[in-house]
Design a protein around this nucleic acid. Structure first.
Lengths: 187, 187
DNA sequence: GTCTATAGCTAGATAGAC
DNA sequence: GTCTATCTAGCTATAGAC
């Protein structure tokens, strides 16, 4: 076995960067190869099913990151709910690089005909709502309020990312995260 | 002069449909031609600068629709502010076809390197905020509250469109419009 | 496992007849 | 103004040497 020239982790980071900034259709194999430091044919060796598989791998990779740095943090009973909420929101801030980076769901949801992504996106969003629903309950919200707050939180994160980019103003994302935290703590 | 086989309005409707559902990179000249009922070469006769010009025309066309059916409605002094708010929000509901259609800003903001779109998107978002800021003031909000509410409204519209599509649940968009209205009226 | 080279295709865009 | 036919460039993907 010949040693890998580029580690899997580094490849995924490169792929993520390109898909996030260019979207699925906009990301060319050329760019993906350059961003990973591999030649096109080598990328196909790692991902035999081509571009689709690369994008799917990016979704899984980011999903794992969120699982560790957001969902697990929010549900970690070793810490009080308030601390978990704060830490989880910090994970979200990191995920989107303070609002500079786009949500991968958005980047990959624009191309048609790839039902695989739609399902992963649907599942992913449900996980987000579920995670925030639970922390809301632990913070003393009623079931109906917790549910409402969780949906609202997802909407505000997604919406503020769009508006942050459109108006080129990182404060919008930053402030929205603070508002989300305060709404949970005041309740 | 030979008569136009397809009217400008119809062409724009076809182009809009494709760009909105496929995004900029994902929309092929093939599809754009089919959607408009013209052949590719004929499309180039109408839009000599090609795909870029077609997308720009779509932005202008939708911008005019919003100007008429949202901004002018919100600022029409012939009606009381509450009625205007309700009617403007109904225009927004129509614009996005109850949440089934994507925001054109989102559809066109994913491709890189076309500064033209970025500028139009930035300008468009500022207009939205400005319009909601004014109606907020007329409804008796303080300047700082009106500003906050206007930004929040844009975030919630954009975010709810994303989540509505991701979770395939039109109620999310519908309810968010109601929440927006109530927040203004209760203030 | 990585590479060079290239196949096969479709994209965006044009030429020129009518 | 619309069409058929076509160009060229870029795309995704593969073959096969090392």
């Amino acid at each position: 076995m010949r040693p890998q020239k580029v580690l899997d982790e580094e490849i995924l980071i490169g792929l993520t960067k390109v898909f996030r900034s260019k979207g699925y259709e906009g990301a060319s194999l050329q760019e993906l190869a350059e961003a990973t430091g591999l030649k096109k044919a080598s990328l196909y060796h790692r991902f035999p099913n081509g571009k689709k598989e690369m994008a799917a791998a990016v979704l899984v990779h980011l999903g794992k990151w969120v699982e560790e740095n957001v969902f697990q943090v929010l549900s970690d009973r070793n810490h009080p709910p308030k601390v978990r909420l704060r830490t989880g929101l910090f994970g979200i801030k990191t995920l989107y690089n303070n609002g500079k980076e786009v949500c991968i769901f958005r980047a990959l949801s624009m191309q048609a005909g790839l039902a695989l992504f739609e399902e992963q996106i649907n599942k992913g969003m449900k996980q987000w709502i579920d995670a925030f629903n639970k922390i809301g309950l632990e913070l003393g919200l009623s079931p109906s309020e917790a549910e409402k707050n969780a949906l609202q939180t997802l909407v505000e994160i997604q919406g503020s990312l769009i508006v942050t980019k459109g108006l080129d103003d990182l404060d919008i994302f930053e402030n929205m995260l603070k508002n989300i935290e305060n709404r949970y703590l005041e309740a």
